[in-house]
Write a protein that binds this DNA or RNA. Structure first.
Lengths: 240, 240
DNA sequence: GTCTATACAACGATAGAC
DNA sequence: GTCTATCGTTGTATAGAC
């Protein structure tokens, strides 16, 4: 799968996802007309992500959010009950998108090797498109309320579990050789996250998301012991 | 190298390092007597790390820092000119320690494989001891002033460069097979950082720092193509 | 559905006593 | 070298007009 292909699919599914977010939060959103609500909520979330990633969510004042989003102070409070809840709404929003797309794309594959490759690429490509959200979600997760933090942790563990389950399956089918799939999944997650956490570094080196995906898959294939050809066996090079 | 061995060495070198930190900051510290200064500065930094990692540096009020550290509001200002500078002092402090220990320990090795192993273990072990600082440093780096952020980025790149240089050397000596040592060093750094960024996860699974080091070295050895024995060659298992 | 005006708590920082 | 008292500013949140 290429990045551009994924991007086009993503754009098509976004409108329905935005409407879903609105429906998930009808309790706290006082504006009842979907047309207004979706438009302004999108604007608020986008602006909040942009401002927060510069100064941190806590340092982003609601006065600044009001000014940059175009809504007044009072207007903002029609969309969330307080700053804490804005944090929850934003976190919830992206997690929804990630899980939906990961599950949809991996379900289309049968072969564990292709399934793992797809899961890695979907994660990287989505974090490339929604980089503001991924960065925010990682950096601000510790400021969530107890219950909301629990939900965020569960989300992280669920995506990690998808990776370990694919590896388990690969081991049973004899195509992978892994001793600890849980720890292996953690390291895969760490590599996936580095892509959006260190954007400044990779951008400065002109590394594209597809370059990164290929390099990372090299590590994963080497570790899983698939596609490795022995040097002593006919003089072939080690393939990673 | 085992964790306990490293820990003992670290404790011995800390006193001199603390004095060095004091000397590096005599400009902003108004207290001139080393006895007072080192004791209180250590107390301030420890408390600031503890409070910040719960609520974020920005959300940590100086009133809370005053109360928890035992110094008064006015007293604090004898040790830094403002909150921004406290951030700089803390960042500077740990970076100093990390670079010093990384360089010292890798210089003791000649073999690239042992050098890489040592660098990885020193990084993991130190982050285990100074986990509060490592976590803080990662999470609050973006709130530094322009110049200080530049210094933090330079530090990150310098440690990364140590890893890529070891790999370059290993390639020249024919013991490693790596195509892109810079990208490989980035992924190694990402794995090192996950250890202190996701402490809650590994603690919950009873994964010790030595378990993590061994697992991580498995990945690195597999990728570098060293120690890999072909399955077809006499029926031996793939070693990672 | 959105605005302006305002309440009041908490912030970083400093002056001056000891 | 450290304290208490206080300054001006900024924070979140709300009431009531339109």
């Amino acid at each position: 799968m290429e990045f551009e292909t994924f991007k086009n699919e993503y754009l098509l599914s976004m409108e329905t996802i935005c409407e879903e977010i609105f429906k998930r939060n009808t309790d706290s959103i006082k504006v009842k007309k979907q047309k207004f609500a979706v438009r302004n909520l999108t604007k608020i979330i986008d602006t909040a992500l942009r401002l927060s990633n510069r100064t941190g969510f806590h340092a982003m004042g609601l006065r600044a959010l009001s000014k940059e989003s175009g809504l007044s102070m009072g207007g903002l409070y029609a969309y969330f009950e307080g700053k804490d809840e804005l944090l929850r709404i934003i976190q919830d929003y992206g997690r929804q998108v990630l899980m939906e797309l990961l599950q949809k794309h991996t379900a289309e594959e049968r072969d564990p090797q292709r399934q793992l490759e797809t899961a890695i690429k979907v994660h990287l490509y989505l974090s490339e498109i929604m980089r503001d959200w991924f960065f925010f979600s990682y950096m601000e997760a510790r400021f969530l309320s107890r219950d909301d933090r629990r939900a965020a942790i569960a989300g992280e563990l669920r995506t990690e579990q998808m990776f370990s389950e694919i590896m388990e399956k690969g081991c049973r089918e004899g195509v992978f050789t892994v001793t600890d799939t849980v720890l292996a999944a953690s390291l895969i997650k760490a590599m996936l996250q580095d892509w959006y956490l260190k954007r400044w570094k990779y951008a400065g080196r002109n590394v594209s998301v597809e370059d990164y995906a290929e390099h990372m898959l090299g590590w994963v294939r080497a570790y899983l012991g698939c596609g490795v050809v022995c040097q002593k066996n006919g003089g072939e090079m080690l393939k990673h």
